[in-house]
Nucleic acid binder design. Structure first.
Lengths: 201, 201
DNA sequence: GTGTCAATTGACACAGTGTCAAGTGACACG
DNA sequence: CGTGTCACTTGACACTGTGTCAATTGACAC
């Protein structure tokens, strides 16, 4: 682990992200990444034991660059549950486009690769934690709409925010990030916030 | 195209569906299908020019067995837009589980195979037509909620009903078909039906 | 000048798809 | 009875992409 070593590793990760972004996370081979890094395909295996491990490392690398904690701060500091919901969806709406390509690459080997499935699953459960916190905040305010239990509401919000929904609305339907955020926010408020509370805002 | 020929073709399609269902649409190889049919792998290529073509044929074969038109009749016969919305989601909620495995297999080669992508895309656009008809019916009744245009509402409903949402709620969260249908219906009504109309039902 | 270490080259195993050629076995038709 | 046809079989092989291995290079360090 000399500094040379770390440097090449970083260059690989940078090249991986760049290549994935250029291709929308589709059809990127080890040879492509090697070429983009400017090293031989085999050298990739000196740093990462498999394609999946490289993809996972690239995901973590990207996370580190993105200051997730800092971006989550506003929603965590929200004074009401409704505010927290709004800010969380706003965070998510800006976050997804930045992790989409790497995520897509990971998702598309999910079926054949246990490690990739587990890594993606982890991320999705972290997102679920955010959803749970939002729902808990609503519940604390007495603002969780009627038939919902906290766990069912968490699952429902979690589902609404799934990446394929974002993918479909933006890629297939051409919605902007702001349209996405606006609709998801409205939808979530209508679903999860008691009507008295919405009316009184 | 003798009757012998058709018979084997049918046996292949049956075996394909069975195999896909058993594996949830994941990791099914040509060899597996051949074995399940009781013929050699190469014989598959006498009937279908590629794996993708077989998957597509299996999708159509399944469609023919499922009487889609008959099942859609109730929603098409609905007297009001709200009724049509409800019945369409009910149709869809029962339909998805029956096409899920084949659909999954098709979706998972979508990224690498143009034909598979096109075939899946077609199905999704057929479903979109259903969504558009629902939204049009609401609009006709003057029941489409305020900020929505017909095309944006169609896209939104279309997205809500996407297969990955069903997959996530049932497979990951353990929801039943009825829970799925109930929630989707409520969600869609809250989103797309003007509040006066909901209140007056 | 010797050792170390990252990286290179080239060969190869493996899985899965798809192709090809030669052969088999049943059935039909003259 | 013999001949042709047709579905299917067997076995070999090309191709792509991942992952492994062994031998080699070239730089820097002591």
């Amino acid at each position: 682990m000399s500094s040379e070593n770390i440097d090449t590793r970083t260059r690989i990760l940078e090249a991986t992200l760049k290549t994935l972004e250029e291709s929308g996370g589709r059809g990127v081979r080890m040879g492509d990444i090697a070429k983009a890094t400017g090293i031989s395909r085999q050298a990739l295996y000196l740093h990462f034991k498999s394609r999946t491990e490289l993809l996972i490392a690239a995901t973590h690398y990207r996370d580190d660059l993105l200051d997730i904690e800092g971006r989550l701060a506003p929603s965590r500091a929200a004074k009401t549950g409704v505010e927290r919901l709004r800010l969380y969806i706003e965070f998510w709406g800006h976050f997804v486009p930045e992790i989409y390509s790497v995520g897509k690459a990971l998702m598309s080997v999910e079926d054949t690769d246990k490690d990739a499935a587990a890594a993606w699953h982890d991320r999705m459960w972290a997102m679920r934690d955010g959803c749970r916190a939002v729902i808990d905040a609503l519940h604390q305010d007495g603002a969780l709409a009627e038939p919902w239990t906290r766990s069912k509401a968490t699952e429902a919000l979690w589902t609404m925010l799934l990446v394929p929904n974002w993918e479909h609305l933006t890629m297939e339907c051409g919605w902007s990030t702001n349209q996405y955020i606006k609709w998801m926010t409205t939808l979530a408020q209508q679903s999860f916030v008691a009507r008295e509370i919405i009316d009184s805002e």
